[in-house]
Design a protein around this nucleic acid. Structure first.
Length: 226
DNA sequence: AACTTATCCAACCGCCGCTAC
DNA sequence: AGTAGCGGCGGTTGGATAAGT
């Protein structure tokens, strides 16, 4: 593989550690689990492989449609896209895109055919916020742009209600606007009820992918306009 | 059957934003 | 204000395997 493959023994130790101490505090996991792995490796192994309810195997047609639409909307924000696909990880989505979809879409573009019908691109816009939030990731967006990917113009900030010390999203008109916008795009309505329900159940169970399945977290990364 | 090429995907790397000090 | 540490993300790598010749 790309690195040193995990052994069953290591998987067992990591699983046991997470079950005992819970997720988070990844810097302590290698010590607690007795693993000769860095915090990042442990986290990645858990998120992409060991975590319960990870869906394996081929992507369903609905999932592929969803990926294409969300990618058009969000760009290479794999974790966000995966968050809408219950049981799929960001790595899965990214690999699938790189192996299958990017080629397929390139071929379609070469034939000058529309990829999806009537999907309006929503560009996240920078807010008038501090420079740290506008700072770009080095080099990454250039390459994305080179590939013709619709890339967000900047990361935008997240509005928190810190009055109680909790990081929860403020309920706002924006939520409704975003939901309505996604609905308008067909992102929601075109999915079968089963698929939507699956996502909802995953959200309620705190499952899903690398992020919780929550419409509110669209606020995390995007501002919508127009 | 042997070799080459293409594809898949787990793992690693480097960077960023956030937070605490 | 500066900085160190952490969690998290996206891009890239490279070994395993399948497909082709």
């Amino acid at each position: 593989m790309g690195g040193v493959a995990w052994t069953e023994e290591e998987d067992h130790l990591l699983k046991k550690c997470i079950q005992q101490y819970g997720e988070g505090k990844w810097h302590r996991v290698p010590i607690l689990a007795g693993l000769n792995r860095c915090r990042k490796s442990c986290r990645l192994r858990w998120l992409n492989y060991l975590r319960p309810n990870i869906k394996r195997g081929n992507f369903a047609e609905e999932e592929v449609e969803m990926i294409i639409k969300l990618h058009k909307l969000l760009g290479n924000r794999w974790s966000l896209i995966a968050g809408r696909l219950p049981g799929r990880t960001a790595n899965d989505v990214k690999n699938y895109w790189n192996c299958h979809l990017s080629k397929r879409l390139n071929a379609l573009e070469a034939e000058d055919r529309p990829i999806t019908r009537d999907v309006q691109v929503i560009r996240p816009q920078p807010r008038n916020i501090g420079s740290s939030s506008v700072k770009r990731r080095g080099g990454q967006n250039e390459s994305a742009t080179d590939k013709g990917v619709q890339q967000e113009s900047s990361m935008s900030s997240l509005t928190f209600d810190a009055s109680d010390g909790q990081n929860h999203m403020l309920e706002s008109q924006q939520d409704n606007d975003i939901y309505a916008c996604l609905d308008q795009q067909g992102i929601v309505s075109e999915l079968s009820m089963d698929f939507q329900l699956q996502g909802f159940e995953a959200m309620m169970n705190g499952e899903g992918s690398s992020s919780q399945w929550d419409w509110g977290d669209y606020l995390l990364d995007m501002d919508f306009y127009e």
